[in-house]
Computed example of a mutant assay.
Amino acid sequence: MADDMSLDPNVENAEQADASESTSPIPQDELNRLTDALIASFKTVFDPEIPVDIYELGLIYRVDIDDNRKVDIDMTLTAPGCPVAGDMPGWVENAARTVEGVDDVEVRLTFDPPWDPSRMSDEARLALNML
């Protein structure tokens, strides 16, 4: 795998792209660019009931960019009964596909571990008056 980024909105973007121990055909600068562009694309997707993007909410658990530029995304929802549960993974997939250099995308929905408000960034907490 080229890059496996554990996304934490409380960590600077440059620190999130950890190169794997194996040699990747994708240069590190390109992986960093893809990482930043994917994060920007995630920030365009909003839960319709919460005025904060899914990245800042902490709904993106894992993103892996393989050597063929396929992006695998593990994400969750704020609750299993979320009214957009059937739609949001598609929104995330579509957003990731807009990133130049991404050849394929697969989004997996997981509830393990369950989402809780501690996953939100300070920016999300501020927007929701939770600071």
Score class of each variant (00 low, 15 high):
2 A>R: 05
4 D>G: 10
7 L>M: 07
8 D>P: 01
11 V>I: 14
12 E>W: 12
18 D>Y: 09
19 A>F: 14
19 A>D: 08
22 S>M: 06
22 S>A: 13
23 T>M: 13
24 S>T: 11
25 P>S: 13
27 P>W: 14
28 Q>S: 09
30 E>Q: 13
30 E>C: 09
31 L>H: 05
32 N>K: 13
32 N>F: 13
34 L>R: 11
35 T>M: 07
36 D>I: 10
38 L>I: 04
41 S>A: 15
43 K>I: 01
44 T>W: 00
44 T>N: 02
45 V>M: 02
46 F>E: 04
49 E>R: 11
50 I>A: 06
55 Y>D: 09
57 L>D: 00
58 G>C: 07
59 L>W: 03
62 R>A: 02
62 R>F: 04
64 D>M: 14
66 D>L: 12
69 R>M: 00
71 V>F: 05
72 D>K: 14
72 D>E: 10
73 I>E: 01
74 D>I: 10
76 T>A: 01
76 T>K: 02
78 T>D: 01
79 A>T: 08
79 A>D: 00
81 G>I: 01
82 C>T: 10
83 P>V: 02
83 P>G: 06
83 P>C: 05
85 A>T: 06
86 G>F: 12
87 D>R: 10
87 D>C: 06
88 M>A: 02
89 P>V: 08
89 P>W: 09
94 N>W: 11
95 A>R: 05
95 A>E: 02
98 T>P: 08
99 V>I: 04
100 E>D: 15
100 E>Y: 10
100 E>L: 08
102 V>F: 00
103 D>G: 04
104 D>V: 01
104 D>S: 11
107 V>M: 03
108 R>Q: 12
108 R>P: 01
111 F>N: 09
113 P>V: 09
117 P>N: 03
117 P>Q: 06
119 R>F: 09
122 D>E: 15
127 A>D: 00
129 N>R: 12
129 N>C: 07
130 M>Y: 06
